[in-house]
Amino acid sequence: MVTVSAKIRESSASLVPEAELIACPQCDALYHAVPPRPGERALCTRCHTVLIQPRKGAGLRVIALAVSVMILMLGATFFPFLQVRVAGLHNASSVFDAALAFVDGPMVALSVAVAALIVLIPVLRAFLVVYVLAPVVFDRSPWPGAIAAFRLSETLKPWSMAEIFVIGVAVALVKISDLARVDYGPAFWMFAALVVVITIQDGYMCRWSIWKSLDKEARK
């Protein structure tokens, strides 16, 4: 366990150029942005928000994971997710069907919201991350709109709810277990894998490094 405790630095903020400063978004504490070694994390000493978290080869890995999110989601959306059997009757449902469950009547808006939360937003985020990182990883200048794209991806983060959907499935299974027999379809396992991949991908992303690499002034 390597723990280097914080020590007072002699440098004064007025001497450090603004571009080398970093402020904690949670508590406004100001620091001299010194990137830690790969694998280490730089935390705000006051509220322990992780501010910088570089990983070796993170860019390429994040792209690979984001691409697999898109592929898995394609399968997970349209293959049967759960199958139910009651008294000889049979019905299979895909994630797509679940999203469209509210289409009848006044609940269309809810259908759109559910589809967005569990399918569209996770896929869109994966796509945006690839769009932002692909040129950066290969040392090209960012593609047009990359800054807006990454901002959108970050804004959408709390609204990506694939993992919550998986828990919802578990609850739904128990709810109808005495009404009918339920089997998992292939999409269930794809969706479960998807949640793991999204979590790993988020862990590899160092926001500070990405914003720095998109910085127009710094690239000049």
Binding site: R9, A33, V34, R41, A42, C44, R46
Partner: peptide
Amino acid sequence: PLVDLEIIGQGSPQVSDQPVVTARS
């Protein structure tokens, strides 16, 4: 003066009550 970022490898961060400089100040 500014306080340094807390750098940790593994493990949990230390609780510090050291006053910090805010961007606003």
